[in-house]
């Protein structure tokens, strides 16, 4: 642990973070450091506070105690270096905007008040759509897309943010196999360019394959570290408690990876 707590090279540092919903704590005393260039999976049972952790990092939910530093500064001062992929169901897909409009929103953080996206912004948005192979859909209304296509649009929007740290909330939920492969390929490419990615994930069977670091969460931080060290039966049992159906999944996941 860095003693000063303000290491500017550290993408994310969390100290004693507690978050409550309606006065009921959902995250207790989280201490966490994420080094640069990692592809990190945030894993835990339903209600473990995975999304809450992501939102609390960005200040979307108020912390009851503790602090978060992003690249050594409070979030607000570093927000232009953070890209966010919210859960797909968090927005209304009947909204009257095109795919291009949504991706351009990723550029808004770089624009001044009342400033319109420039030609350069549109160029970048087009490149990002190309990367997720959604460029032919640029002028489609977003409601006419499949779940996987919608997720790719969200990913393209995050790419357009040109960030150093990406926070992604369940990007693999409800997508087809082709999209899942496309997303993980893209995440690895971002990682190879030195970006740090923190991804909420629920499918234990793919954890070992996808992530090189894990954060195991169940209201408290159960463990954080390299996947091969902490993705063990013992720690998963501590994370998921005595939930038998999940434990059999765990056994299978470990068996496959083993």
């Amino acid at each position: 642990m860095s003693a000063s707590g303000t290491d500017p090279a550290l993408p994310l540092e969390i100290h004693d973070l507690t978050v409550a919903y309606h006065k009921k704590p959902v995250l207790y005393g989280i201490d966490l450091e994420i080094p640069a260039g990692k592809l990190v999976g945030v894993v835990g049972p339903n209600g473990a506070g995975k999304s809450t952790l992501i939102k609390a990092i960005m200040g979307l939910l108020p912390a009851s105690s503790g602090w978060v530093k992003v690249f050594g500064k409070p979030y607000r001062e570093s927000c232009h270096r953070v890209g966010y992929v919210p859960q797909r169901e968090s927005v209304d897909w009947d909204f009257p905007v095109s795919v291009m409009d949504v991706v351009l929103m990723g550029r808004y953080g770089r624009l001044r008040l009342a400033q319109r996206p420039t030609r350069h912004d549109r160029e970048i948005a087009r490149e990002c759509l190309e990367k997720v192979r959604m460029l032919p859909f640029a002028n489609r209304q977003i409601g006419n897309l499949s779940g996987g296509q919608q997720q790719r649009v969200f990913l393209a929007r995050a790419l357009a943010q040109e960030s150093d740290l990406y926070l992604m909330d369940e990007p693999f939920v409800g997508v087809d196999a082709a999209t899942e492969t496309a997303i993980i390929t893209l995440l690895r490419e971002l990682q190879s360019r030195g970006k740090t990615l923190i991804v909420v994930h629920h499918d234990l069977s793919s954890v070992r394959e996808y992530f090189d670091m894990l954060v195991l969460l169940n209201m408290r931080l159960v463990a954080a570290g390299p996947t091969r060290e902490i993705f063990t039966q013992e720690i998963l049992q501590a994370t998921y408690g005595g939930r038998l159906t999940i434990l059999s999944d765990v056994a299978q996941a470990i068996g496959e990876g083993g």
Binding site: K55, M58, G59, L60, R76, C79, H80, V82, Y84, P86, S90, V91, D92, F95, V97, D101, V102, M105, Y108, G109, L111, L113, A114, Q115, R116, P117, R157, L167
Partner: peptide, 22 residues
């Protein structure tokens, strides 16, 4: 006209808007 983009993103995706510091 002036605040088209601000009204658009805060209406469509409040979570993203706040993550952008709005």
């Amino acid at each position: 006209t002036a605040f088209y983009k601000e009204l658009l993103v805060t209406s469509f995706d409040p979570g993203l808007s706040r993550s952008l510091g709005m």
